[in-house]
């Protein structure tokens, strides 16, 4: 068993980390921090976890050494104290955006503030196993992933890998996201009368995850448009790509199969009939699976690539545990083998 502590455990990602790690066969959860709820049971923040642990939240100042520290803090917080976290654990997984991008100038451009620990950026590996498995396996420090970025990257990666993308025209991704993406802090936009039944274009251009997709795919022409929809969990990326050569359905089957052969958490969903012929995040709630698929317009060469995930799982906590499993030499599926709930 390895000793894992979570910094920032009262948010939604912290709750998902706890839900997975309290049942993980090779992990002992040692400490979970929350300044606001220090001394309180976990179920004060995460009611579904009632009775699953005798531990209570502790303040950060009480953190002790452990084997792996998982940081689930708001963006901008992890980098302020990274030296301190590194003294507490040999391995760190940071779920925030602080260490995803390699270039501090790119970070500043998208996040509007200088990076506080630029010397650490090269020490972190971008934590998406489907693209970076071997590097993660050998890493001590792994970054989290952006949920919208993951849905987009996994949808389009097979096309990029197969050399099909017309890079001049690039990728246009319309991403629909549920309300839990916004985190636990309430604001005017999350107020129920405003949020409920809304289909809100909240970032038609300029979303921060654009930089992550560009970096991961090695493509400059990436355009994300974000729409908030009614669901609580779930991301669906609908990505429009133009092929630079004539392409058939069989070509696309080959591209997706070759990209994801043996991947434990990526499933190809592309059927001719039925309600769920394309990926739908509805059936992924609570699971670490990413469903990918496509539709092809052979007349125009337009490929519509889909990526669906649960934003709190494959888009955050589940993916972080997948990285932890790789870093610690465990079965990559450990603690993560539950399918989604259906119906929900």
């Amino acid at each position: 068993m390895i000793r894992v502590s979570i910094v920032g455990g009262s948010g939604y990602v912290g709750g998902e980390l706890l839900r997975i790690l309290l049942k993980h066969p090779h992990v002992e959860v040692r400490q979970v921090t929350s300044e606001r709820l220090a001394g309180q049971w976990f179920h004060r923040a995460h009611p579904h976890l009632r009775g699953l642990s005798d531990l209570r939240f502790v303040p950060m100042e009480k953190l002790e050494a452990c084997d792996v520290l998982v940081l689930a803090l708001p963006h901008g917080r992890a980098m302020r104290s990274i030296d301190r976290w590194a003294r507490l654990a040999d391995r760190i997984i940071d779920c925030s955006a602080d260490f995803r991008l390699r270039d501090p100038t790119v970070y500043e451009r998208w996040y509007g503030t200088p990076h506080r620990a630029p010397a650490w950026l090269d020490r972190f590996v971008y934590g998406l196993p489907e693209l970076n498995r071997e590097a993660i396996r050998n890493a001590r420090y792994v970054s989290g992933v952006g949920c919208n970025a993951v849905a987009t990257i996994l949808a389009v990666w097979p096309l990029v890998r197969a050399g099909l993308v017309d890079s001049g025209r690039g990728i246009i991704a319309e991403v629909k996201a549920g309300s839990s993406e916004a985190g636990r802090q309430a604001g005017p936009a999350s107020h129920h009368p405003e949020r409920s039944r809304s289909i809100r274009s909240y970032a038609p251009v300029g979303h921060r995850h654009t930089a992550e997709v560009q970096m991961a795919l090695g493509l400059e022409a990436v355009h994300l448009s974000m729409t908030a929809v009614e669901t609580v969990r779930g991301v669906l990326a609908t990505c429009h790509v133009f092929s630079k050569r004539p392409v058939t359905e069989r070509d696309l089957w080959r591209a997706y199969r070759e990209a994801y052969a043996g991947e434990p958490f990526v499933r190809i969903v592309h059927e001719r009939t039925g309600l769920y012929r394309h990926p739908d995040p509805k059936v992924l709630v609570g699971s670490n699976y990413a469903d990918v698929g496509w539709a092809l317009d052979e007349q125009t060469g337009r490929i519509v690539a889909f990526g669906a995930i649960d934003n709190l799982m494959k888009g955050a906590a589940g993916n972080a545990v997948q990285c932890l499993n790789l870093m610690c030499g465990f079965d990559e599926r450990a603690g993560l083998d539950a399918p989604g709930l259906y119906p929900v």
Binding site: W253, I268, H270, E271, R272, T273, G274, R277
Partner: peptide
């Protein structure tokens, strides 16, 4: 016979 991958009949 249905195909398990693409669902074609």
């Amino acid at each position: 016979i249905p195909c398990g991958d693409c669902g074609a009949e």
